[in-house]
Design a protein around this nucleic acid. Structure first.
Lengths: 102, 102
DNA sequence: CCAATACTGAAGTCGTAACTTCACTATTGG
DNA sequence: CCAATAGTGAAGTTACGACTTCAGTATTGG
């Protein structure tokens, strides 16, 4: 579970769609697969990747696997983002000052 | 310039390295290429992708191209992230309430 | 002026990752 | 009990993307 795997996971449009769908609440694998025209196997594989990088958690009850959003992966992403912004924000602010000079 | 292209761009470790390097200030293509052991052409191609998705802007002065971070792409990413979080935060909060029940 | 520098377009190679099919296990409703 | 449902491993195909080489264009220092 690292930022590299998070970005790799979200770099794929199908996996991003899965994550976005899970935003509306927990779903089974079949239910997630239904609107996408790919096989259930493919969806299962995507979910394993999303799980490995900490964006999704799942739990099996009976024969159905229930999938939900895992905040951990998003925290990782948020930390990376705010760190990057912290690197150049001060510099850009100064640039703004310079540009604002009359 | 959309969130799909931003995630695709940052899904690649080399491009992420470029972005992170640019955090310390504007750099030329050659300077960015130096620590990476890939050709200058490859770096140039990566920068075109980073530019297209709004993570980097460049300007050519003479024969050197100067690259710097472009906040626009990061804003796009931040918006996506906070939107996703807004989708499930309330739900997870309630889940927290339930888990907090004695 | 010209050799060196800085970069970029085009075209091709190669590895990986997304997807499929098939076979299989486990669970459940009737 | 058994057919249907839900999902997953294994193995193979294929498309795409990262990278290279090569050739070419500007620009600049000496």
């Amino acid at each position: 579970m690292n930022i590299a795997s998070v970005f790799h996971a979200l770099g794929d449009p199908t996996r991003r769609a899965l994550v976005e769908r899970l935003g509306s609440g927990p779903q089974s694998v079949s239910h997630l697969a239904e609107p996408l025209n790919i096989t259930l196997t493919a969806v299962s594989q995507h979910l394993q990747i999303l799980q490995a990088c900490g964006l999704v958690t799942t739990s099996k009850s009976g024969r159905t696997r229930n999938c939900r959003v895992n905040p951990a992966g998003f925290v990782l992403l948020g930390n990376w983002l705010s760190y990057q912004q912290s690197l150049w924000s001060r510099r850009l602010d100064r640039l703004g000052d310079i540009l604002d000079q009359p």
